[in-house]
Design a protein around this nucleic acid. Sequence first.
DNA 1: CGACTCAAATTGGTCTGACCTATTACCAAT
DNA 2: ATTGGTAATAGGTCAGACCAATTTGAGTCG
Lengths: 217, 217
Amino acid sequence: MDALARYIEQRNLQPGDRLPPERELTAALKVGRSSIREAVSQLSALGIVEARIGSGTYLLRKISADTVYMPLSVSADGLAEALLMTLEVRRGIEIEASIAAARRRTEADIVRMRDALEEMERTHHREGGSGKADFAFHMSIYDAAHNPLFRQLLEQMRDILDRFWERPFDRNDFAARSFPYHRTLFDAICAGDTAAAAEETRKILDVVEEDIRNMRP
Amino acid sequence: MDALARYIEQRNLQPGDRLPPERELTAALKVGRSSIREAVSQLSALGIVEARIGSGTYLLRKISADTVYMPLSVSADGLAEALLMTLEVRRGIEIEASIAAARRRTEADIVRMRDALEEMERTHHREGGSGKADFAFHMSIYDAAHNPLFRQLLEQMRDILDRFWERPFDRNDFAARSFPYHRTLFDAICAGDTAAAAEETRKILDVVEEDIRNMRP
DNA sequence: CGACTCAAATTGGTCTGACCTATTACCAAT
DNA sequence: ATTGGTAATAGGTCAGACCAATTTGAGTCG
């Protein structure tokens, strides 16, 4: 796997690029196809690479010599419990991301966040658009933290939550309750007020927690 | 990989247990050995399993049907940057764990934390013992949070940090600087003071951050 | 009786070559 | 220009052989 990672790095392959076919890599790396396949298999388990049958193997994320791989696995019993536990962890990460964003946001970050926020304010009463705008706003905050781990982790945790969370019956109501905190969070990050950024983030996630608590049948 | 994970789960294998040899698994799962090897290879990349040549394949961490795998890869300008990024995430999680512990600690939790803390105070000047006692104290806090995700995540993040972090030359000095905050953290958790628990946790991790910043070669 | 030695069995690691299936590319007919 | 089918391509799986490290256990020696 290290040899393959080094190969990818030396060729300076970018996310989206296609790797050479396995049968060619055997020649390039001077190992059998089984070894190539195991290396690709490991990189694919780590989410670095995606193998599409009939098409090829594609690079998903940039790697370099000093990339550190840290696979995490979590298990819990009971869906609602698992969601609440996951949310509690996510709250910690998300608050720290907001604090980091308040410390490190640049002018460009502020523009991106404001655009996303205003898009959100325009569409928060509508049906479908609200979700996407909310997503974009939070992503812009994660990026403003200038620590790619935040986006990577929180994006995945949102995916997990979305997969299991039965949306509240009245999604508009949910959006309305969490809505006001988004503007204050944006203001806090712009002002570099880490304490306020943490507090507003906490409020937003409290609304989510409340909804999960009410979802049980 | 899913089939193999299901197999491990159904047999209720525990961390440390040995999996059947690959040649037997081919019969059990009714697939060729290549497929078994790729599955093992992926689980090993995820840190679930460790293959020892000549000996066998051993389970490292417990998995279950609702285990969520979140492989992360961090690339930064050098190892120190990557470690600082992961530490920032860990800080968020660890602070939230301390807050949860301050809210939910029971009498039994307090006893365990006090025992670990006093063991730490007895050994913090010695050479080897200090590390283990520190580990035990923090684990007792994670458990006091009554959210198993905290322990799973933070235990793994500590493992990862330890793997790459060149210990400070003077480990005693490091222990001495972070030492006083441990007692105040314990007091805050006992008193149910969430704000103080968060603050003391932040101080402890600031010491770690400082050491990583000074480690560059 | 215990400790050491060494060979056989066990187990993961690698290589080869074959075949399957999904995808893609290409070319001819419409 | 569109369509339809065919060939080439690429990943997925299987089987069998061999390699190298480890473990095991019988045999030997002190």
